[in-house]
Measured scan of single mutants.
Amino acid sequence: EAEIKAARERAIVPLEARMKQFKDMLLERGVSAFSTWEKELHKIVFDPRYLLLNPKERKQVFDQYVKTR
């Protein structure tokens, strides 16, 4: 159900806005820029903003977040 709702939101909200919300979530959840995606996943997986991006986009935004922190 959450994935269906997220898919609707992905269709409406522009990618750039969704990427910003995802980055904000990473900051708010205290995701370490010195860790790996796999180790940090448990901090963010239950946040509704996690589903704003598809899996490939999530990883790309995380990688970008790590490089710029």
Rank of each mutant, 00 (worst) to 15 (best):
L41T: 11
Y65K: 01
E57C: 04
R29S: 10
K56Q: 09
D63C: 10
D47L: 00
S35G: 07
K5Q: 09
K20A: 04
I4N: 05
D47T: 00
E9A: 10
H42I: 06
A7G: 14
V45I: 11
L41G: 03
T68V: 08
V13N: 09
K59A: 11
F22R: 00
L53V: 04
L15G: 05
L27C: 09
G30H: 09
A17K: 12
Q64I: 07
Q21S: 13
R8P: 05
V61R: 01
Q21P: 03
F22Q: 00
L27M: 13
E38S: 10
K59R: 14
E1T: 12
E40F: 02
E16I: 13
T36F: 06
K43I: 00
S35T: 05
Q21I: 06
Y65Q: 03
R10A: 14
R58S: 06
A6P: 08
K5F: 10
E57F: 06
V31S: 01
E28T: 05
P14Y: 05
E38D: 09
D63Y: 07
Q60E: 10
T36I: 04
I44F: 15
Y65F: 08
K5G: 07
R10T: 14
V13G: 06
E38N: 09
E1G: 08
W37C: 02
F34C: 09
D63H: 14
K5P: 04
H42E: 15
K43N: 03
E16V: 07
R18Y: 03
R18T: 03
A6C: 09
K43P: 01
L53E: 00
A7K: 14
E40N: 03
R58T: 03
P55K: 14
E16S: 14
I12C: 07
T36A: 08
D24S: 11
L51P: 06
K56V: 13
F62T: 01
I12S: 12
L26W: 00
F34I: 10
E1H: 03
P48E: 15
M19F: 08
S32D: 12
P14D: 09
Q21T: 12
A17P: 14
G30V: 02
V66Y: 04
V61C: 10
A33Q: 12
R29Y: 04
E3Y: 08
G30K: 14
L26C: 05
H42N: 10
E28C: 06
R8H: 14
W37H: 03
L26K: 01
T68R: 11
K59H: 15
P55T: 14
M19T: 08
P55S: 10
E1N: 03
F46N: 15
F34Q: 14
V66N: 06
A11I: 11
A17S: 10
K67L: 15
S35E: 12
D63Q: 11
E28Q: 12
I4M: 01
E38F: 03
E16T: 07
K43F: 01
L53M: 03
D47N: 01
E38T: 08
L26Y: 01
F22W: 10
G30C: 06
I44S: 02
Y50N: 04
P55V: 07
W37Q: 03
R29E: 03
Q60L: 12
L26D: 00
R58K: 05
L27W: 09
R29Q: 14
K67Q: 11
L27P: 05
N54K: 13
M19C: 07
L15T: 12
F62D: 01
T68G: 09
V45M: 08
A17E: 13
R8Q: 11
R69S: 14
R10G: 12
M19D: 02
R69N: 05
R58G: 08
A33F: 07
F34K: 14
W37E: 04
H42A: 10
R49W: 00
S35F: 02
E1P: 06
E38W: 04
M19I: 10
S35Y: 02
F62N: 00
K5N: 13
M25P: 00
M19Y: 07
M25C: 11
P14N: 05
L52V: 07
Y50C: 03
R29A: 10
W37P: 04
A33L: 10
M25Y: 02
Q64M: 13
A33N: 06
P14W: 02
K59T: 11
A2S: 13
W37Y: 08
Y65S: 03
T68F: 05
V45P: 01
L26S: 00
E28I: 03
R18Q: 03
I4E: 08
R8K: 15
K20I: 02
N54F: 02
V13L: 14
L51I: 13
K67V: 13
S35H: 05
H42Q: 08
K23G: 08
W37L: 07
R18G: 03
A2L: 10
V66S: 11
T68Y: 07
I12K: 11
P55C: 06
V61Q: 11
I12M: 14
V13K: 12
E38P: 03
Q21H: 04
L27G: 13
W37V: 03
K67I: 03
L53I: 08
R29F: 03
I12G: 08
K56R: 13
D47E: 06
L53K: 00
A33V: 12
V61A: 12
T68I: 07
W37K: 01
F46R: 15
A6N: 13
K67D: 10
R18K: 14
A7I: 09
E40D: 08
A6K: 13
Q64F: 07
R10L: 13
L41S: 09
R58Y: 00
M19H: 08
L52Q: 05
L15F: 06
K20H: 07
E1D: 04
F62M: 04
K23W: 05
A33M: 07
K5C: 14
P14L: 06
E28A: 07
F62L: 03
T68S: 12
Q60Y: 13
N54I: 02
E9W: 04
R49M: 01
L41P: 00
I12W: 07
E9L: 13
F46P: 13
Q21N: 08
A2F: 09
E1V: 06
R8E: 08
K39G: 12
R69K: 14
Q60H: 14
T68A: 14
T36W: 03
S32V: 05
V13P: 08
E38V: 03
A17W: 07
Q64H: 07
L26M: 10
M19R: 15
A17G: 14
M25H: 01
D24K: 13
P55D: 11
T36L: 05
N54T: 11
E3N: 06
R18N: 04
A17Q: 11
A6E: 15
K39Q: 12
T68P: 09
W37G: 02
L41R: 11
Q21K: 08
K56S: 15
A2I: 04
I44N: 02
S32P: 03
V13C: 08
R10Q: 08
K59I: 04
I4T: 07
E16Y: 09
R10S: 15
M25E: 00
K23C: 11
L27S: 13
L52M: 10
V31H: 00
K56N: 10
V45A: 14
R10Y: 07
E16K: 12
K43T: 02
E40Y: 01
L53S: 01
S35I: 00
A2C: 03
Y65W: 14
I44M: 07
A11P: 13
A2M: 14
Q64W: 06
R18H: 04
V45C: 11
E28H: 06
V45R: 14
P14A: 09
Q21W: 04
